[in-house]
């Protein structure tokens, strides 16, 4: 099935694309047909650069268990980081 269901969000991030590092602006998370991963459905993450200038994308496709483990690992890493470092933001 094509679920169409897509979580979209704005992000501040850098990603290494096929053309090198780029500042990224948006992300999509969805469970749908993968392009490359050999399964009928997969959890997909796209990190994108939109707006003026060249568009860019880094994509991930993984099974549901991997996606949950990754999400939990991200949250654990953030929980273990000193709180004073989490607001270490510098405007692009």
């Amino acid at each position: 099935m094509c679920t169409y269901q897509t979580e979209t969000l704005r992000v501040r991030a850098s990603a290494k694309t096929a053309r090198g590092w780029a500042n990224m602006t948006d992300a999509s998370v969805y469970f749908d047909h993968p392009v490359h991963f050999m399964a009928n459905h997969a959890l997909m993450i796209d990190v994108l650069r939109q707006g003026p200038g060249e568009t860019a994308r880094v994509g991930l496709e993984m099974d549901a268990a991997s996606a949950r483990a990754l999400a939990e690992a991200i949250l654990r890493a953030l929980e273990h980081a000193p709180a004073s470092l989490l607001d270490d933001s510098v405007a692009h």
């Binding site: 897509t6 948006d26 999509s28 392009v35 796209d46 994108l48 939109q50 568009t55 994308r57």
Partner: peptide
């Protein structure tokens, strides 16, 4: 229009993100 010259899956990802 979303991503001229991009790989089809990259253009599709951008179109999806745009709704």
């Amino acid at each position: 229009r979303e991503a001229p010259g991009a790989d089809p899956d990259d253009a599709a990802a951008i179109a999806r993100n745009n709704g």
